[in-house]
């Protein structure tokens, strides 16, 4: 975790040099949705940290697992204790790049986002598309992708294997502000 903080600091400290290219939010929204014949499970997280560097197209998204809020307290408990083991792995990180970003375009544009999601101590590639929109004072990035539970070494007990989808749909909605020093 120390290393994480140092890396994060390193990323941020670069902002002094290229401040006009950096956008960030501390209150981005991510939710995930799992569908199964027995049960639909949804959880929201409103405390997402996302940093975009428009000069390189890089995106870094940091999520606290304990910040996911479920409708049922029991689901939230199982999620934290049994599946993602949030005491051991409190954070999840996505690092990626928007490959076809065109800053001269105004309005919504579709961007390809390729990167790696680290969750539960395991990493796997994520390739998806998102909708990018840059205005004078903000950048929004919205989209979704499917994450395969097995890629992240998350064990689902046999008794509830039918209650939880093998693939989880992750939706993100991030409104960034320019970083001002």
């Amino acid at each position: 975790m120390k290393l994480f903080s140092i890396l994060l600091l390193a990323v941020i400290s670069l902002q002094g040099l290229f401040a006009q290219d950096k956008y960030f939010t501390k209150s981005g929204h991510i939710d995930f949705f799992s569908h199964s014949p027995l049960e639909d499970i949804k959880a929201n997280n409103e405390q997402v940290l996302s940093i975009i560097d428009t000069s390189t197209g890089e995106v870094a998204i940091y999520v606290l697992m304990k910040s996911f809020s479920f409708k049922k307290a029991l689901m939230q408990e199982h999620f934290n204790e049994n599946y993602v083991e949030s005491d051991k792995f409190p954070k999840s990180v996505f690092k990626g790049k928007m490959t076809n970003l065109d800053l001269s375009k105004s309005g919504d544009q579709e961007v390809a986002i390729n990167g790696e999601l680290t969750l539960h101590g395991k990493s796997a590639p994520i390739n998806t598309t998102g909708v990018f929109n840059k205005s004078d004072d903000k950048i929004t990035l919205k989209g979704d992708f499917m994450a395969t539970v097995a890629d992240y070494g998350i064990q689902i007990p046999r008794t509830v294997v039918n209650n939880i989808g093998k693939e989880i749909k992750v939706t993100f909605d991030l409104t960034h502000e320019p970083y001002q020093n």
């Binding site: 994060l8 501390k26 405390q47 940290l49 606290l64 910040s67 409190p90």
Partner: peptide, 12 residues
């Protein structure tokens, strides 16, 4: 309720 630390400590 404390959910952890990113750039700041977060309470929900």
């Amino acid at each position: 309720k404390c959910t952890g630390h990113l750039l700041d400590v977060i309470l929900v």
